[in-house]
Design a binder for these strands. Sequence first.
DNA 1: TCATATACGACTTAAAAAGTCCGATATAAA
DNA 2: TTTATATCGGACTTTTTAAGTCGTATATGA
Lengths: 138, 138
Amino acid sequence: MLKIAKSVEYALLALKYIHERQDLDCVSTKVISDSVVIPYELLAKIMQRLVKDEIIISQQGTKGGYKLAVPPDKINITRIINAVEQKVQVTDCLVETPTLNDCKRYQDCCLRNPLNQIQIKINKLFDELTLGEIIQYN
Amino acid sequence: MLKIAKSVEYALLALKYIHERQDLDCVSTKVISDSVVIPYELLAKIMQRLVKDEIIISQQGTKGGYKLAVPPDKINITRIINAVEQKVQVTDCLVETPTLNDCKRYQDCCLRNPLNQIQIKINKLFDELTLGEIIQYN
DNA sequence: TCATATACGACTTAAAAAGTCCGATATAAA
DNA sequence: TTTATATCGGACTTTTTAAGTCGTATATGA
């Protein structure tokens, strides 16, 4: 439990790789997937999500690829997570106005409140961590 | 991603229920599963794990059941989580001396270090939260 | 116009979580 | 001492989610 999705790890690794190759105009999915060892098709999908969220900029066609849209220390991990994953919750019933569908015992669920506190604190951890801090290792 | 296992939620709910029924000598799995609405067989397994970790005390046979082994504010959530779940890690490769089996890119994995920092902070959140604090709601 | 890219959706497979079943042992009470 | 009601413990099945794959369309530099 409490596991970070592979797609988030792959996104971080790919973003690091792109940053290291700033000298190049852009880096292709193929090159990244070969270098970092990430399944090509999967990485391709992740890259597209990062483009949508304007974390990277794409260049289509031959000699195409991606480059960072923002310097690494201006991007926090929350933004990357949200770009790549949809369900990022400690428990399912942490929605504004839960119904029986979201929380079987929503009328007197003693867990929702404290778990929400946990959720807020975990979110804060990722808010305060930037891509720049991650990629400084190694 | 980052989801808390149902078994942990069930454990917390069950422990709360037992605490509320301190007046009784002990509470059976049947009564808890009916009251809190948790699948009986699943809860039975969870209760056994809580016994093994000496969070609750069991009384076998007719009129048997469980009671808390310790007051709720003396049990932190980490202990409950560890009793009930085995794999509680942000990423798989957070082991002492990772091999290629644990981490495909362990030789120059730039993620292990920062993710471990995250792991430590999340662990701290659960260390500092007691069952007493959880069950005070509602 | 061709080779090499990204874009996007649908699909399949694999792994993990959740839930079930079964046979055993313990024990209070009839 | 028998019976009903519990816990105990492992194996198993089902469901859900995550991970990975495939196919087709579009863009673009050489």
